[in-house]
Amino acid sequence: MRHIISLLMENEAGALSRVSGLFSQRGYNIESLTVAATDDPTLSRMTVVTKGNDASIEQIVKQLNKLIDVVKVMELSDYPHIEREMMFVKIRADSNEVCAAIKLNVDIFRARIIDVTKKMYTIEVTGSPEKLDAFLNALKDNTIIEVVRTGAMGIPRGSASLTI
């Protein structure tokens, strides 16, 4: 089962490697991991997407909580939540026909073309990881040059929150 875990941790050197190290040391999977400082510069917020059964997710959450730099952990999958991921796609667009087809998909997926050169389009798209997969799938007849994904980030809906 796919799980999405959010954590707040001290914004200190080495904190990130403690978390990523934990996953490799204990043989847990990481599908994606994103991290950045929050509005409070002493805190970082991290979102980890992982796979495992309920018992192993319980262990992951406990082990994360045990790390001294980790302030709080929340298993977002336990709550109604919103999940988004951002992606850049660089794609060959060297004929009018191809450009039009791409433009159509960009409109359908509410993506944006953020860079245009003679032969290339660079597209920005935001959405759930499934939507991003679907977008790539829709473009599979084209020549995709480069894909950059941020990995998922999430936030609980309503008044539930991960704050200190």
Partner: peptide
């Protein structure tokens, strides 16, 4: 005292 030791090997 260590929550991670509980239900790690035996529920």
């Amino acid at each position: 005292i260590d929550p991670a030791s509980i239900s790690k090997n035996r529920p």
